[in-house]
Amino acid sequence: MLNRRTLLATLTAGSLLATSGFALAQDKMYIPLISKGFQHQFWQAVKAGADKAAAEFGVEVTFEGPDTEAQVDKQMDMLAAALAKKPAAIGFAALDSQAATPLLKQAQEAGIPIIAFDSGVDSDIPATTVTTDNLAAAALAADKMAELIGGAGKVALVVHDQTSRTGIDRRDGFVNEVKAKYPNIEIVDIQYGAGDQLQSTEITKAILTAHPDIKGIFGANEGSAIGVLNAIKETGTKGVVVIGYDSGKLQKDAIRSGEMAGAITQNPVGIGYETVKAAIAAVKGEKLPAKIDSGFKWYDKTNIDDPEIAAVLYD
């Protein structure tokens, strides 16, 4: 009796959910995107871009990512499930390229093209990588920083991590630009806060304490940048130039109010869109460049509401 009831309930719940699955016509080209995250605004914007492309080109797209960027194994389970669905192509942003290699090889053998996106995949398997040129974008942040602090003084970086491609590129892009062009600017500290707002806040507080004469801080992703802002607010520090990365409501508000001088925005919507577009091209056997730049922009108080900028910003 009980057994039967439980089973029935399970069945009902299952079939309710499954209707969405059945609704997807099987003859459409199916392209799953496995990303590095899911809940974060940035990834939701990528998803929005992918959905947009899906509607435009008439393909089926799903978007999944683990809860935190540490869950490498969960991402692999997602990739394995995606492969089982015999997709036309897969969009993939690896948390750990090495760990994913066996599955990617499996896809390669099955003739499923892989389109890397965002931080990409450290491997020659992907047909192409849709990404922001983070080195160039961070160099632009360094130029803006130099301009805002008058070309001299101490600056620091709060970066999300030192292992991912984006972390490394944004750090190196900024540091190399400063070294090459601004001899009077001294980079006094580079700290890593896992992109976590709270952790980044504490790190920034420590930097502010150690270097009271600091002129500017660069937060290398959304979580880092908001952490920097929080620390400045909580300590009541004045006159430090903050440059952020990506968007999100908090950064946008801070830029409008002047707490943040400006930020680099990638084009997450563009990443999602271009990934799907590249995937379709790959399926059709078209030639793809090794890299597809999805673009970046500097934005501040003056241009935040320009339609061209507003289109790539997200809340």
Partner: peptide
């Protein structure tokens, strides 16, 4: 989890289930 993924159930709903 795998089954829901195969059925392309949205990730939010996988957690709920």
């Amino acid at each position: 989890l795998n089954g829901l993924r195969i059925l392309s159930v949205a990730q939010e709903w996988q957690t709920v289930v």
